[in-house]
């Protein structure tokens, strides 16, 4: 198992993901600069959080034109796993590798806090070591995490079990009160139809060590780095 973390100008969770993969999960990992069109051989691609290109224009809108994104597309087309976290999720949406788009949080302000999410489906490389209905406490930190898609897309996501995480309470209740950003159907993470590309707003790399507030995020890394 090998992983790469793609670094865009303005990425700022790149070293955090790298740290978890290398020091916690003990997976060989390399950084890839966004200008590199050709990746080193890898099993997992991580698109980290941050503010690629300052989030100017729209979140993730400019990063999707980076040469490295060509490799990400090829990698995804070969059915190998791509994990986009926060800004990485936004880039995947802009790149069309996942359906939908991001709007500003319903509160209109940036929000950073631990939230609970519920695992909706375990048939993905990213959730294979979790249980359906399992609750994970993982922090969010974003100003635009308000996931939007039209009715038709939402129906497709539901029919194909592409919704992987939903925001919930610590008891697992789903509802407006537990949705931090107003996302459609309380979506916190989705996969593509082929189930090898996951985008999620919560940051599992921030919840993977005992010294930090939660270790629940490690289950996602352990699933995908099996």
């Amino acid at each position: 198992m090998r992983a790469v973390v793609v670094v865009f100008p303005g990425s700022n969770c790149d070293t955090d993901c790298f740290h978890v993969l290398r020091d916690v999960i003990k997976t060989p990992v390399e950084f890839v600069w966004h200008k590199e069109g050709n990746f080193p051989k890898t099993d997992l691609v991580v698109l980290p959080g941050g503010f690629s290109y300052g989030d100017y224009l729209r979140t993730g809108a400019i990063a999707r034109f980076s040469p490295a994104m060509e490799s990400v597309r090829r990698h995804a087309a070969e059915g190998r796993p791509v994990l986009g976290i926060c800004n990485g999720f936004q880039i995947l949406l802009e790149a069309g590798l996942l359906p939908g788009a991001m709007l500003r949080n319903k509160t209109l302000s940036f929000v950073c806090k631990p939230v609970w999410i519920c695992v909706e489906d375990t048939h993905t490389p990213f959730t294979q070591k979790t249980q359906r209905g399992e609750l994970l406490q993982i922090p969010i930190a974003h100003g635009e995490g308000n996931y939007y898609c039209d009715e038709e897309t939402l129906k497709k996501l539901k029919d194909n079990s592409q919704i992987i995480f939903r925001y919930c309470s610590e008891k697992g209740e789903v509802g407006e009160a537990f949705n931090p950003n107003g996302s459609r159907d309380h979506i916190a993470g989705i996969v593509n139809e082929r189930r090898n590309v996951l985008g999620m707003m919560p940051h599992p790399e921030r919840a993977s060590e005992a010294i930090l507030a939660s270790e629940d995020g490690r289950k996602i890394w352990e699933s995908v780095c099996l």
């Binding site: 224009l57 729209r58 809108a61 034109f65 949406l93 359906p99 788009a101 939007y148 898609c149 039209d150």
Partner: peptide
């Protein structure tokens, strides 16, 4: 291509 996101 760039200036708008046709989804939204």
């Amino acid at each position: 291509q760039l200036l708008i996101n046709p989804v939204i």
